[in-house]
Amino acid sequence: MSSELPDSRVPPEAEPASRLSRRTFIAVATATAAVGGGVVVVRNLVPGPSPLGTTPAETPPSGRVSLTVNGKRHTAEIDNRTSLLDLLREQLGLTGTKKGCDAGACGACTVLVDGRRVNACLALAVRLEGAEVTTIEGLAPGEDDDLHPLQQAFIEQDAFQCGYCTPGQIMSGVGCIREGHTGSREEIREWMSGNICRCGCYVQVVRAVEQAAGGK
């Protein structure tokens, strides 16, 4: 635990110098991550082991987290900066959950954590010890070709074009139905508003959620 007193609500005093030093730091940090990880270029990439020549002080603080994803227990060593989204996609190979804005503004990364729909991009994985996570891969009931009723409804209602937002839409729709906000199309629209669809399939998405909620 650090003994510094950052209180980052109060930014440092010397403006031009601090801005320069921050940029320098980012450049150095990026280079380190690229050498250390050498895997995929994502901003909060999970770095691999420290490269030779770096001192322990330069190793990003990391931790271990055990959580259940789609009924299966996982234990992972992670950089503290790793989001649940990156843990799922980069370490557990569950790429069904999509990265859209990476800022909580689009809903493409929606998953269920302990039964509640959340934005996986804003959830730090290190905080999820013991959590139960459900992703699009874990939604269908069995191992065979059975689909979850909402997945089936998305097909029947033609509720996607490019499909990028679809896993998030479906996980959000499952949350919406569980929360009971499907009393009318108007209500579904409002309670599905955290999921953006650039293809503009909103009318069909609402119908799909309505269909699945009705068949419950």
Binding site: G104, G107, T110, R116, R117, V118, N119, L122, A123, S172, G175, C176, E179, H181, W191, M192, S193, G194, N195
Partner: peptide, 9 residues
């Protein structure tokens, strides 16, 4: 305010 997902967090 926000979205259902954000309000859950």
């Amino acid at each position: 305010g926000a979205s259902p997902q954000l309000r859950n967090m």
